[in-house]
Amino acid sequence: MDETRLREEICRFGRSLFERGLTPGSSGNISLRLDDGGWLVTPTNASLGFLDPARISRLDAAGRLLSGDPPTKEIPLHSALYETRGTARAIVHLHSTHSVALTMLPEIDPRAALPPMTPYYLMRAGQTALLPYYRPGDPAVADAIRGLAGRYTSVLLANHGPVVAGDTLEAAVFATEELEETAKLYLLLRGLNPRYLSPAQVDDLVKTFGLTLPAPDAHHDHDHAHGGHAHPGED
């Protein structure tokens, strides 16, 4: 896909996310990694609902601005995730309400922020890490992302929002949406002792769809044992 169409794709998905209330105001950002190692990234203080393809920031492989408006201040976040997730070609960062709310709950396991609630959560988002709070744009968040060593495609920033990588922008958007809906389910069912997927059901998904999930940690209960990443599932 040529750069013109990639710019249009960023605008199309950004508008869809904004119009459905998944990232309000000028919050959130999207990036795409290009074949030459450079990026397209949404500008700072830009609403995802009103992006101009011509004003999207074009960066070289070193992160220097080549054209367009100044880029989002979350460049360190995107850079570290690309660095550690070699197959990632797109990253979506939102301030989606239910995902942010999840990060504020005291019981959340940072190695597995959500239990295995639905098959599509595992198939699209894999499993989700939770990082501590960093102020927006803090370069230290890059070291925190590197500390995950590329094991996760979906990450939650405490009191801030989700960051999700994908092989394509569509895959990253779909995984972000699945993460948000799963966070919503968790909040709806919190305290009601819901039935999650069993270990056998999770293993069946792993085998059928070729998911890559790390082995369970003997010190965790099953509900929080399946941290890691996955390849997006297909209908």
Rank of each mutant, 00 (worst) to 15 (best):
P194V: 13
G233M: 07
N29S: 01
L192Y: 13
E8W: 00
V173L: 02
H98T: 00
L22G: 12
A113H: 03
A80D: 13
Y186E: 08
L105C: 04
N159Q: 11
A113Y: 05
L169V: 13
M104C: 09
A112E: 06
E178H: 04
G228C: 07
S79H: 13
G161K: 05
T118R: 08
A140R: 14
P106E: 12
V164W: 08
I145V: 15
L6K: 02
I30K: 02
I56G: 02
G227R: 12
P110A: 07
H229Y: 06
E19N: 15
I56Y: 05
Y152F: 14
D223R: 12
V173K: 03
Y133Q: 04
T176E: 11
F18R: 00
E178V: 13
G68M: 02
A62K: 09
L188S: 14
K184W: 12
T42R: 07
S96D: 01
R20P: 06
P214Q: 15
D35H: 10
L169Q: 15
A113V: 08
P71T: 08
S99C: 05
T72Q: 02
G137K: 12
E74C: 06
P214N: 05
L105G: 05
F13K: 09
G68N: 03
D204W: 14
H222S: 05
L211G: 08
A80Q: 03
L94W: 00
G14L: 10
R89H: 10
Q127N: 14
